[in-house]
Design a protein around this nucleic acid. Structure first.
Length: 830
DNA sequence: GCGGACTGCTTACCT
DNA sequence: ACAGGTAAGCAGTCCGCG
């Protein structure tokens, strides 16, 4: 068995495909696939002479092939053009395109390594059975050799992350004025490094060049501080330790944009070779790539997994710092150290704190990786994308790569990406989405929520919605009016698009495959004794989630203007059937079961039975579910039962469930662009109303906060509003408070605010508009500003609580009234 | 000249 | 940077008003 983590190809000689990983016996090894060459397709006019292509330099072979058209219809005849080396493809593609009689070129933009993984059916991160292969060595690594046919026959499966040697590292840098990543003028003062092996070895190191050797524990793990004589010596020592540990997976937090490029540039400045990082040594240690404003950094022979991407995609956080991610995933409140404090600690020789902080960075990055990486491995396996790529890709791209892999398996031509103009054209036309029912505003008791399980994927499968089944030629034209039951039709209600009834489409096959595999994993999970096998259970659970995420991506994918398989009519039909089903079950609930629908959004309904308790309501709902689930191809499930629930507007509600938890959706409580003090007050008010059923206590909460605010007894953090820049400040038509605050901070730091920057700002006392008064938290004290208490009362606390109190029938006067009189009295006697 | 009504821009949420 | 639907704040303008 070889557990692979990395894939590349030989740049010298033949383009052998190389997979690097670790054998079961614990030793690193490579799998070398010989004889695979890059290729692409050309669509040509009748009578085109293939020898015109054959004589171009870099062409190995041209053959005629028949492939399924991605948008349906007859198979298409294409020329499959095989090239000598990956690097000749871009030029060759342009030459072929220009030939007379060539209509279009396909699949020429698929990078060779990804093409190989898809074509050879070799998941780049998987456990491969290499037992039947010839052995030898490659660049000093033990190696297994396969030709293209052998490779396609190899057995492979996903593996648990713990079966690899995993490590993490983090740099602390002295941020001297003018330090940039490229300039790398600030020295690296500490490198923390953590690792764990399949044998259970687990250690942390901090390598630095000031202070004394010491050791301590971080979170129960032995941590050694190694002091070297110089920065250069520290770097070399780090490389030594790294090579000794020889990790398969290297976790970082922001390593793509910071740690790896900085290490590369700084090592360059010091004249130190980073190639010892690579496996085998001597290859490129750090590979920096940048495209479209984004950076990616790889380490040859290992999988660099930057957990920042994983956090961004899988967690819902206010700020995506390591500390926030660690708190969310591991429940640990890790201390944060600011840049200035790091500088000061280093300069003053206050190293103890600094070393601990540094050690914790690597330690918790590793712990985070062990928690989060399994899902990335599964997605890499499902898409055949190299693991580091899979972590960086959006769900839309992952869905696309699963489709590319499946298309190759089924001899379907992969459509090209849209041109810029095509992209713009696609975006111009919007389409209708889901229905949101008008809520019955106010407090309700004994409400049950039911929802469709994976509505959109199931609609796609049930109605055969796919780019290749849309408007087929083989089925008769039917109009919406002729359809009496859309449940059993392939003509979408409302929009009237028609889908093939005879042949199952590519996307339904794709989605159904994912749904079925997921069902199988869930079945295995249910059978497993979770108590005695908690670890296996977790892996199965993570895997089933990966299938769900991918299956759920295809609806959005078809409506994505950048998608290769873009199909607006498909996306539009999915939502049309969705609207049909939710409206249909609403009608049945009301007409046949006397259930009153108090709210509903897309695939859910909140229902209540007048004058019934929760138990009776649940019983009635179950009868109702039984009927609809016998009649419809999509399954409606009981989601939750609420003792009390308050609807404020569409998309904003809070409920108190049967089992005592408070669920809050859309309200200020859950929005980061509201001040924590307003959110917290609203949370308390909701608890009083929902859990305690005591609106008067809610009023008291409000008055207490207002008093506290007026007395000035508030922390600046309680007032900080969090907001993200979505573009460069200059591109804003309207510069709102967050933009002005970001500009103020940027000017102070002497930098340019980048899109994606998250600012935290406070509204301070002074003249002008709200924006004029928005200051970043960092500068409030420095510039001697006072928070604008009136603003926080009128525009934060009161709107947040008023929405709740009004929904249960209180007027503004009743909410503030008492405080006002209280205040007058205070003034009289104060 | 002022303030409320209205519009457009913007963000972050829901499913 | 997978979709559309939605609320809501703020900036800026319009409009009525002796």
């Amino acid at each position: 068995m070889l557990r692979t983590v990395w894939v590349d190809y030989a740049r010298k000689g033949e383009p052998d495909v190389i997979l690097v990983g670790r054998r079961e016996d614990g030793n690193p090894a490579a799998l070398v696939v010989k004889g695979f060459r890059p290729y692409f397709y050309a669509e040509v006019e009748d009578g085109f002479d293939p020898s015109e292509v054959e004589r171009l330099s870099g062409v190995v072979e041209v053959e005629e092939v028949l492939l399924e058209h991605p948008y349906g219809g007859d198979r298409v005849e294409l020329l499959r053009i095989v090239a000598t080396y990956p690097k000749v493809v871009p030029k060759l593609r342009e030459q072929v395109k220009k030939l007379d009689g060539v209509k279009e070129v396909y699949e020429a933009d698929i990078p060779f390594v990804r093409r190989a993984a898809v074509d050879l059916n070799l998941p780049p991160a998987s456990e491969v059975d290499v037992s039947d292969l010839d052995t030898g060595s490659w660049s000093g690594l033990p190696a297994y050799f396969a030709d293209v046919e052998d490779a396609r026959e190899l057995d492979h499966r996903p593996y648990p992350i713990e079966d690899l040697v995993v490590a993490s590292f983090d740099l602390e840098v002295l941020a001297e004025p003018g330090t940039t990543i490229k300039g790398a003028s600030g020295p690296i003062i500490a490198i923390s490094f953590a690792y764990s092996t399949p044998d259970g070895e687990r250690r942390n190191y901090v390598i630095t060049w000031k202070g004394e050797d010491e050791s301590f524990e971080v979170d129960g793990v032995e941590t050694e501080v190694i002091v070297c004589r110089s920065e250069a010596a520290a770097l070399r020592r780090f490389f030594d330790e790294f090579r000794r540990v020889d990790p398969d997976v290297v976790f970082t937090y922001n390593g793509d944009e910071f740690d790896l490029p900085y290490l590369q540039h700084r090592a360059g400045k010091l004249g130190i070779d980073v190639s010892p990082l690579a496996r085998p040594a001597g290859k490129r240690g750090i590979i920096l790539k940048h495209g479209g404003g984004r950076y990616a950094s790889d380490i040859f022979g290992r999988a660099h997994v930057d957990l920042y991407h994983t956090a961004r995609k899988n967690l819902k956080l206010e700020r995506f710092t390591l500390e926030e991610a660690v708190k969310d995933v591991l429940g640990v409140e890790k201390e944060e150290m600011e840049l200035a404090d790091i500088n000061e600690a280093w300069k003053r020789g206050n190293l103890d704190e600094l070393m601990r902080y540094s050690a914790e960075d690597a330690h918790y990055t590793l712990e985070l990786g062990l928690e989060l990486a399994q899902v990335e491995l599964e997605l890499s396996y499902l898409t055949r994308l190299p693991l580091p790529d899979a972590t960086r890709f959006s769900f839309g791209q992952l869905a696309e790569w699963r489709a590319i892999y499946k298309a190759r398996q089924e001899d379907i031509l992969v459509p090209n990406k849209p041109t810029r103009d095509e992209y713009k054209r696609r975006r111009r036309k919007a389409y209708k989405g889901a229905i949101v029912f008008e809520p019955e505003i106010g407090l309700h008791e004994n409400v049950v929520c039911v929802d469709f399980a994976s509505l959109y994927p199931n609609v796609m499968v049930a109605h055969n919605i796919s780019p290749d089944t849309f408007d087929c030629d083989c089925c008769p034209r039917v109009t919406v009016e002729e359809v009496d039951d859309p449940t059993d039709a392939t003509v979408a209600p409302d929009v009237g698009h028609k889908f093939c009834k005879r042949r199952k489409g590519f996307f339904p096959r794709l989605v159904e495959g994912l749904i079925e595999r997921r069902r199988e994993l869930k079945r295995r999970l249910r059978k497993l004794d979770t108590e005695s096998h908690p670890h296996e259970a977790k892996i199965l659970d993570v895997r089933q989630q990966a299938y769900k995420v991918l299956a759920n991506s295809y609806y959005g994918y078809m409506g994505w203007a950048n998608a290769r398989w873009f199909c607006r009519e498909c996306a539009e039909s999915v939502t049309a059937w969705g609207r049909y089903y939710i409206s249909e079950v609403r009608r049945i609930a009301e007409e046949k079961y006397g259930l009153k629908v108090v709210y509903g959004d897309t695939d859910s309904l909140f229902v209540k039975l007048p004058d019934a308790d929760l138990e009776e309501t649940i019983e009635r709902v179950k009868e109702f579910l039984k009927e609809v689930n016998g009649r419809l191809p999509v399954e409606l499930e009981l989601e939750d039962a609420y003792k009390r629930i308050l609807f404020v507007t569409k998309k904003k509600y809070a409920g108190y469930t049967e089992d005592g938890k408070i669920v809050t959706k859309g309200l200020e409580v859950v929005r980061r662009d509201w001040a924590p003090i307003a959110r917290e007050t609203q949370r308390r008010v909701l608890k009083r109303i929902l859990a305690d059923n005591d609106p008067e206590a809610a009023l008291k909460e409000i008055h207490e906060v207002l008093e506290r605010l007026k007395s000035g007894d508030v922390d600046i953090d309680e007032l900080a509003v969090t907001s993200q820049l979505t573009k460069k400040p200059s591109e804003y038509v309207q510069k709102g408070p967050h933009v002005r605050a970001a500009l103020r901070l940027a000017r102070h730091l002497g930098v340019e605010p980048e899109p994606g920057t998250i600012v935290r700002y406070v509204i301070v006392r002074g003249p002008g508009s709200v924006s004029d008064k928005a200051y970043p938290v960092e500068l409030v004290r420095e510039e001697g500003k006072e928070p604008d208490v009136d603003y926080y009362i009128e525009h934060q606390i009161l709107p947040a609580v008023e929405r709740i109190m009004r929904a249960i029938g209180y007027s503004r006067g009743q909410i503030v009234g008492e405080t006002a009189s209280q205040k007058t009295l205070d003034q009289f006697f104060g």
